[in-house]
């Protein structure tokens, strides 16, 4: 069962596709944003899991006598940044949705298109 052994990739792929599906298929703008967040979260997981080393602990420098195995801290640091970016995007997206609601009085994509066509 080797392909299950890499289960975190499956989690990544499934989450990614769920998110992507929501972005593409949902007409409600909020749901699209939720999908986008899932999509990004999947990538966060990919990064974090890749840094995991079997039996590794947190990379805190200890005394020289202990020879601990550390998980790779760099992906975690990177993803911290990416999470910040993701949150900003989400916040901005929600802000835009609020403005759309004010202007169009709806947050359904097809209704907005309908209004614009008129």
């Amino acid at each position: 069962m080797e392909f299950l052994g890499l289960y975190h990739y499956w989690v990544f792929a499934v989450l990614l596709m769920i998110g992507f599906y929501a972005v593409v298929a949902k007409l409600n703008l909020i749901k699209k944003l939720i999908g986008l967040s899932l999509f990004q979260a999947a990538v966060f997981l990919l990064y974090i899991t890749m840094g995991k080393v079997d039996g590794g602990t947190a990379p805190i420098f200890q005394t020289a006598s202990q020879t601990n195995v550390f998980s790779n801290p760099l992906p975690q640091v990177l993803i911290l940044t990416a999470i910040v970016v993701g949150i900003s995007t989400l916040a901005l997206g929600l802000g835009i949705v609020v403005r759309i609601k004010e202007e169009y009085d709806t947050i359904e994509e097809h209704e907005i298109q309908e209004i614009d066509r008129r």
């Binding site: 992507f20 972005v23 703008l29 699209k32 986008l36 999509f39 990004q40 995007t89 901005l92 997206g93 835009i96 949705v97 403005r99 759309i100 202007e103 169009y104 994509e109 907005i112 298109q113 614009d116």
Partner: peptide
Amino acid sequence: DRRALPAVFKYLIMGTI
């Protein structure tokens, strides 16, 4: 122009992807 809003939303989605 309010049509900028749906346009930018689309841009945001596609840009983020």
